[in-house]
Each structure stands twice: as C-alpha cells, then as structure tokens.
Design a protein around this nucleic acid. Structure first.
Length: 209
DNA sequence: GTCGAGATTATCT
DNA sequence: GATAATCTCGACC
C-alpha cells in the first residue's frame, strides 16, 4: 500500500519527457523508475546515443530493420542483442524521424527483487542484480521481443524521478568510436554503477580452436 | 581491488 | 565473414 514509488507517467507525459535531445533526457532519467511486470528498477546509470550525429550509435549508418525503432517516436523501447550473450535496453528520445536514445546501464531493484534474483541467479548480491546493460535487461525480463514496445502499454511503465538527482558524467563504456564524448551519466556513490572500463579491442582475428 | 581473455549470435557488408 | 553499446571468471596484488 505504501506506494513510495511515484505513479506511472501517462502517455502524453512520457512523450513530452522523451521528445527532447538524448543529452538532455539522460541526466534526468537518473532516479526515474522503469517497471516491467513485477520488477521495478530505479535508474542509476545511463548513456546517451545521438543517432546520425554519433559514430558509436547503431543508427549512425542509417536506418535498418533493427534500428528502425530509434528513428521512430519517443517513449518506445529499443532492445538489441550484443556479443551473442546479452540484451541491452534503450529508451527512444527525440521526435519521430530523429534517431536518438538512452542506454540503460545500471539500476537498483526496488520491487520484485525475488523475481529478479531468480532470473539472475540465487546468489547474486543485490547491488549486482541490474549493474550493467546486459544484467539490467535480464533482471527486468526484457528481451528482443520487447523491442518497439511503448512505455505505456501496460506491460511496461515509467515514472519520472521525484526530484532531480545529483550526477556525474564521463566517457561511455565499451564504445569503440567517439570515446571522447562524455555522454555517460550516473549517480555518484551508488553501488549499482559499473566501474568505468575502456573499450577493449578483441583482436583475436582467428580464434584458434 | 585490478587485469586479461573467451564465450556466442544477430546483424550488416 | 567480420563485427559488436558485455559479462564472468581466473590470476594476481
């Protein structure tokens, strides 16, 4: 009953919030809440990706079937599969026709922790349940079938932060291009924020047996 | 705590 | 066929 979590935003509210540049949306996402089924996450770390203007973005080279969602209207979820192992979840920004999104990198589980732990493994410490994009999506139970889903469709929902969070910013993690852009935002001191690790080139061309 | 390296598959050229 | 917005593990300090 004590619904300490803020109420889910209506469709117009979601659209108004996300219909802005990703760089403006990203810091304001910190402290907001994303819910999927029984699990709710409070975001602690995000990165901004600005499509055509950003060499590190999937949308940089134009629209493809996969990145179509990023070019669409704001308030939708873009999910992609990476390294053959993990899903990563983005929230689409800017108006229809502009490719921009925010990658959710870290969060703390505030509801449905038992469900999240079942998905991540019984012995997973709380701080690790949704630390890192792949883990965050796994804890939420979001996969590729959720790509293109709206944040107001009943399965997913989103609530703005009750108040602006203090934040720090720095270079994005693991990106090969435009590593000099400080487009990562996080809540300082939060244990669910991943430690910075520069992108590592996998220069094993031929992986011997 | 830090560091290095492998796993595995959708997507694009 | 090459690439990729990652994670986890083992070795070491």
């Amino acid at each position: 009953m004590s619904r300490s979590v803020t109420e889910a935003a209506s469709r117009p509210a979601v659209e108004a919030f996300f219909r802005r540049p990703a760089l403006q949306v990203a810091p304001e996402l910190l402290g907001s809440v994303v819910s999927h089924g029984p699990v709710s996450l409070r975001l602690t770390e995000v990165e901004a990706y600005c499509g055509l203007d950003d060499p590190a973005s999937h949308a940089y080279r134009g629209e493809t079937p996969r990145t179509k969602v990023m070019f669409g209207p704001p308030g939708y979820v873009y999910v992609y599969f990476v390294y053959g192992v993990h899903w990563a979840m983005n929230l689409v920004c800017e108006h229809d026709g502009v490719a921009a999104a925010c990658l959710l990198r870290g969060a703390e589980v505030i509801e449905g922790e038992d469900v999240a732990r079942q998905r991540r493994g019984e012995s997973t410490p709380s701080a690790r349940l949704a630390r890192g994009p792949g883990n965050l999506a796994a804890a939420l139970g979001v996969t590729g079938t959720d790509s293109g889903r709206a944040l107001w469709d009943g399965t997913l929902s989103w609530s703005p932060a009750p108040e602006p969070s203090a934040y720090e910013q720095g270079p994005r993690v693991g990106v090969a291009a435009a590593a000099d852009r400080n487009w990562r935002f996080w809540i300082p001191g939060n244990p669910t924020v991943s430690a910075y690790r520069a992108h590592k080139r996998r220069h094993r061309g031929t992986r011997g047996r």
